[in-house]
Design a binder for these strands. Structure first.
Length: 543
DNA sequence: AATCAAACCAACCGCAATGAT
DNA sequence: CATCATTGCGGTTGGTTTGAT
């Protein structure tokens, strides 16, 4: 139902029986766009129904909001998805199902609609072709992920939905796997979605940086706009044309700059993507497989996976940027400062009074509060529930082992959530661990809720929090910086790595760092979480 | 060049959550 | 507490573009 001050939609009569002004439908014209942009520029987002009243735009508020969110909003990326984005989408979809908005939150500049359309076309095309929707690895990991959720919270049903109609409509893993006939692919489980980002994409300077870092300002659709408004107020560049094929948005650029400036050391980021590469033969066939998985054979496989060896040999212009702060690197979270105009503030909390142009809220910018506090709190929480978690994980492990024992490698249906999991073989343990480590970081990014997120969501242990918990070290110590202690890279690395709660079904020693690295040495096999911790411990004071 | 189908994309619709009153 | 307005999300539809024949 669309109503706006008694006005009704097209051709219907208002409450007084007077034919109201009909609201236009259909494609937007440039003039309408201009009106809407001007309106938002002037009044800000929200109160969309007022647009029609105040601007004379013959569009319902809903339509205005959609138009703004999907097309006019600054920092929007246009054009086809990069291979990195595609991978992220696949991975997120495996975990989240049809949570387009949440997926969009992890893909800066992308809208839920875009992602949805992408998925519905390319992925369902694969369904029709009888090809697997997800790489085997993703299937496995998503299955573990979902299983974790069930174990951690038996009442937390598979893809718990607040909205009932979604519960049945979110195909996610099980249905898609079913429909995709579970055809095994040659996809190598060692190839995580996140450990194979290539850095050659001109648009995505660093997928992880962009995705995870920017997610902090993109995970709330409003956030980007607020940034924009701030920027706009500062230098009036907010509506500077299409971002397509342009350098990152002003905010994004500044953000990235900030990332680099706060990075204390020159540890190449490559190590994150080179875990024990010798263990896994990354052949081209696999690339092709995954490429074709994404979009038939239309995507250049080279663009999908840059073999680790090659990644390390990228020209400087394509070399991954220097490691980011943990805040930019997902699991770290924390108040990321973004230089906007002359103001330094968090990307999270910029709010602008559109009348004065002044920021009205800079909550978590003040200190390391916000995500970091939340992190610490959750750490405490997790510590308190350590035994429970351990139990759960052991339980899960035994469950999975039972499954493995029973089925060997194959597709298994779990009772509760209908999650069909491709049970990995033991040989994939390492790869899976890597996957988990990486995805857990990613997941942390996904799941990490800012402190100002509705408490209800935090308390209700929804998907995000569950994701966080599932991937959070069960006995994670307080970061040194938080305790005011010295920064010890190796300690931090091991502490972060050890006891990772990522459920590792296969043979696994949860309390032993897999590849201890000398302090400060950027070993090519530096563990993701190690790096993360490293960054965490070297995190400069926020704002 | 014409036709058709597939792919792509923008927009609409319905439902639910949330906030305001 | 109830009601209403607003907002957000996900599903679906329909128009346009693109590519194959």
């Amino acid at each position: 139902m669309v109503s706006s001050g008694g006005a009704t939609v097209e051709g219907l009569k208002g409450p007084l029986g007077v034919m109201s002004q009909s609201l236009k439908k259909g494609p937007w014209t440039a003039a309408e766009d201009g009106i809407l942009m001007e309106y938002v520029k002037k009044h800000g987002e929200g109160n969309w129904n007022a647009v029609q009243k105040n601007s004379g735009l013959m569009r319902c508020g809903k339509s205005c909001r959609l138009r703004w969110a999907n097309h006019l909003r600054p920092n929007l990326k246009k054009g086809s998805f990069s291979s990195d984005e595609e991978r992220i989408i696949i991975e997120l979809h495996a975990k989240l199902g049809n949570k387009w908005a949440r997926m969009a939150a992890q893909l800066p500049g992308r809208t839920d609609n875009e992602i949805k359309n992408y998925w519905n076309t390319r992925m369902k095309r694969r369904q029709r072709a009888g090809l697997p929707i997800y790489p085997q690895e993703v299937q496995e990991k998503a299955a573990v992920f979902h299983l974790q959720q069930q174990v951690h919270n038996p009442h937390h049903h598979h893809h718990h939905q607040k909205r009932h109609h979604n519960s049945s409509s979110s195909p996610s893993l099980s249905s898609l796997l079913t429909s995709s006939q579970n055809i095994a692919t040659t996809y190598n489980p060692s190839l995580s979605l996140f450990n194979n980002f290539n850095f050659s994409s001109p648009q995505n300077h660093h997928p992880l940086h962009q995705n995870q870092a920017n997610s902090y300002y993109s995970d709330n659709p409003n956030r980007q706009f607020k940034l924009f408004c701030n920027t706009n107020n500062m230098n009036s560049t907010g509506f500077s044309g299409s971002p397509y094929n342009q350098p990152p948005s002003a905010a994004g650029l500044l953000f990235n700059q900030n990332i680099q400036t706060v990075q204390p050391n020159n540890i190449p980021f490559v190590p994150n993507f080179k875990f024990e590469s010798e263990n896994f033969d990354h052949d081209h066939e696999r690339d092709v497989s995954f490429s074709s998985m994404i979009a038939g054979a239309s995507i250049d496989p080279i663009d999908h996976f840059v073999p680790r060896h090659e990644a390390a040999e990228l020209p400087s212009s394509q070399m991954p940027p220097r490691p980011t702060t943990p805040s930019s690197g997902s699991s770290g979270g924390g108040g990321v400062c973004v230089m906007v105009g002359n103001n330094t503030t968090t990307s999270n909390d910029i709010d602008v009074d559109y009348k004065t142009g002044e920021p009205t809220k800079t909550a978590s910018c003040i200190s390391n509060s916000g995500l970091l506090d939340a992190l610490v709190q959750e750490s405490h929480h997790l510590s308190r529930n350590d035994q429970k978690l351990i139990y759960s994980e052991n339980n899960l492990s035994s469950m999975a082992e039972d499954v493995v024992a029973e089925k060997g490698k194959g597709v298994v249906s779990s009772e509760e959530g209908g999650v069909e999991m491709m049970v990995k073989n033991e040989g994939d343990a390492n790869a899976d661990n890597q996957w988990e480590d990486l995805s857990s970081n990613s997941q942390s990014s996904i799941g990490m809720k800012r402190s100002e997120e509705p408490l209800e969501e935090m308390n209700s242990m929804d998907d995000d929090l569950m994701s966080l918990l599932n991937n959070f070290p069960a006995s994670m110590p307080l970061p040194d910086w938080y305790q005011g202690g010295s920064n010890n890279i190796s300690n931090a690395s091991s502490s972060s790595t050890a006891g990772g709660s990522n459920v590792e079904i296969a043979d696994h020693q949860p309390n032993v760092p897999p590849t201890p690295s000398p302090p400060g040495v950027a070993s090519p096999e530096v563990h993701w979480s190690q790096l993360d911790s490293y960054s965490w411990n070297n995190m400069p004071r926020i704002c």
